[in-house]
């Protein structure tokens, strides 16, 4: 087609213009070209690695030589079901569930306030106040709690000042979750897990709550519901997709963490540590791989359930 009018210059017939013509004539060519590099990377490098991992969980380790036997077997998975290993899995899942539940309870008021009552500059400040801890260094955050929970640290000092020391000692003397001090007990570990993942819970709940139109709350009040009834029958159900979305993070992150349990908590292993120790010092890659499949499976089930709750609309 010729250009519109003779006295305007005609665009140069560059190679890119010809190529652009081809993109227009062939539907899907552009899409393909855009998708190929990320798919190559994620599909081959990442999924390839995951599959390699999965495959190794079907190998076994020779008990005498300690070398890997590259033959298909379910022996490693059977080993996973031994009481000691099952114990690790169970302990980790319980911890993840407890952390998720506590995070949701603690996150809700912050998210609710940010979504419903904060606006303008206040809202921006709230957003930053939640984003900053979310993005700040994981290790520094863990380190902060090592400082705080140390015997000579700030928590003990403050508890001593207000006379709460007996209460903490009472908590620590509880069976199973207790321990000699906060920094080597499940209580301390639980506390720090909540601290680490709380922002991941607040943001999706806030996003979900913001999608609840104010008119809905007014309608409920107009129909005679008390504020508490409105909260329980309107706000809470509508916030559930946000809670589900947030719980994906809190659950998944707790399942896989192996750094925090090394630094704070008792010496018994959580799942992440077990994987780390098995693949590293123990050199038992097949069992480490089988262990690693557990959180994948747990998360797959979890994601399916969360999808039903509408979690993916809340991101």
């Amino acid at each position: 087609m010729t250009a519109g009018v003779l006295d305007l210059p005609i665009p140069r017939e560059s190679l890119s213009r010809r190529f652009s013509d081809a993109l227009f004539r062939r539907q899907g060519l552009l899409l393909t070209l855009l998708l190929v590099p990320p798919l190559l990377w994620l599909g081959i490098v990442y999924v390839g690695s995951l599959i390699a991992l999965l495959l190794q969980s079907f190998f076994s380790i020779d008990e005498f030589s300690g070398t890997i036997v590259r033959e298909f077997t379910l022996k490693t998975y059977a080993e996973l079901l031994q009481p000691a290993n099952l114990d690790v899995i169970l302990r980790t899942v319980v911890m993840a569930a407890a952390v998720t539940l506590a995070s949701a309870i603690l996150a809700f008021p912050v998210a609710y306030y940010a979504a419903r009552y904060a606006y303008g500059r206040m809202k921006a400040a709230f957003y930053l106040a939640i984003m900053m801890p979310l993005w700040s260094s994981y290790l520094v955050k863990v380190y902060a709690w090592k400082l705080l929970l140390a015997k000579e640290g700030a928590v003990a000092w403050a508890a001593d000042r207000i006379g709460a020391m007996p209460m903490i000692d009472g908590l620590l003397s509880a069976p199973l979750i207790g321990g000699p001090s906060l920094s080597v007990s499940y209580i301390g570990q639980f506390l720090v897990f909540i601290y680490l993942w709380l922002p991941f819970m607040i943001l999706p709940i806030q996003a979900a709550l913001e999608r609840v139109p104010g008119s809905l709350v007014e309608a409920s009040a107009d129909l005679g519901a008390s504020p508490n009834q409105t909260f329980c029958t309107v706000v809470l159900p509508l916030a559930m997709p946000g809670v589900a979305a947030g719980s994906i993070f809190t659950f998944s992150l707790t399942l896989g963490d192996y750094i925090l349990p090394q630094i704070i908590g008792p010496s018994t292993l959580l799942l992440g540590q077990a994987v780390y120790v098995l693949q590293g010092t123990a050199g038992n890659i097949p069992l480490a791989a089988a262990f690693a499949v557990v959180p994948i499976m747990v998360m797959a089930v979890y994601l399916l359930a969360a999808k039903r709750l509408g979690a993916f609309d809340a991101f």
Partner: peptide, 16 residues
């Protein structure tokens, strides 16, 4: 057709 020329497959940036 635009001014007598069929425009099948002609992208928008080549149309007058």
């Amino acid at each position: 057709s635009i001014f007598g020329e069929p425009v099948a497959g002609v992208p928008p940036y080549r149309r007058a």
